[in-house]
Write a protein that binds this DNA or RNA. Structure first.
Lengths: 153, 153
DNA sequence: TCAAATTCATTCGTATGCAAATGATATCAA
DNA sequence: TTGATATCATTTGCATACGAATGAATTTGA
């Protein structure tokens, strides 16, 4: 093989570019689609609440009173996003806000009685949503998938 | 065991409700966080384009001229969403629009020369983004994960 | 053929999601 | 103590994302 041939071969080997990039095989693209599908399943079961709204209620049910930002960090929302979510839940009477006695910066968030009822009513449905989202996988695959997905989150 | 005891035990067994629902273990919640992490990695590598915008460019590079809605279905965007994405790419000179000669409903989308250059330049970076997103997994785990994730998307 | 149904695109309204800037309050450190 | 930092919350601006309504153009089917 001549020096020129070697060079050509190297150039070929160094050039996977463009031609073999398939968007539909990229993890980000598929992750986005899987998320879309989940949101769609969620909406089919719970029409009057979004996944982020339900996440806020469920977490409040777990931990009780917290500040708005603290709640946000528990459910992976930045300050601006959680504010919008909490505002809408408040407008619907599912949470109530109060000021922290000591630290005047903090805005405390609590479930209302109606909010507690909603969570209790919705949790069984949320379990169905999880199951339907994972339905394409066998039980064994679910265990593997959840373990790996958690590593990426 | 008395009949009463049996009844109590059954009631307990039938009541997983609320108490064992952990938001942070639900597939939808983790899917949302994994997607957030990916978007953040994307933004760190490609500051001037969003993942949906890049998806549109990469797919146009693949398939060439298509109608706006057709492109949307190829990259999993509804008509309203894809319109916004294409409008912004057009404003930046990365795509150009034209009317379909025969079917006057259709709006054809094409990469501009600048758009083609951008895709060529960005595809290697996009490959890095995929790799970094999957970095927490071993090669074997990546293969398994992608197979299962595809089933859910 | 022609009325009904479908497709393509647009617009409106609502809801995340995040960066950046701002203001109020609290904490830290020299 | 007080000046520098840090934290909590809000606001603005921009970008998906999608349901629903609308209008234009095409296709279907009786």
């Amino acid at each position: 093989m001549s020096a020129e041939d070697v060079k050509l071969k190297l150039v070929e080997a160094e050039e996977p570019d463009e031609n073999d990039y398939r968007l539909q095989d990229q993890v980000g693209f598929i992750l986005r689609k899987a998320h879309q599908r989940h949101v769609s399943i969620f909406a089919a079961h719970i029409a009057d609440l979004t996944p982020p709204q339900f996440a806020a209620l469920a977490k409040l049910h777990d931990v009780g009173e917290t500040s708005q930002n603290q709640l946000g960090s528990l459910i992976a929302m930045d300050a601006a996003t959680v504010k919008g979510v909490i505002d809408r839940l408040k407008a619907r009477g599912l949470v109530e806000l109060s000021k922290h006695e000591v630290d005047k910066r903090r805005l405390l968030v609590n479930l209302t009685a109606e909010g507690r009822d909603a969570v209790a009513r919705l949790i069984p449905i949320a379990r169905d949503i999880t199951q339907e989202t994972l339905a394409p996988l066998s039980a064994k695959e679910v265990a593997i998938f959840m373990r790996l997905l958690a590593k990426l989150a």
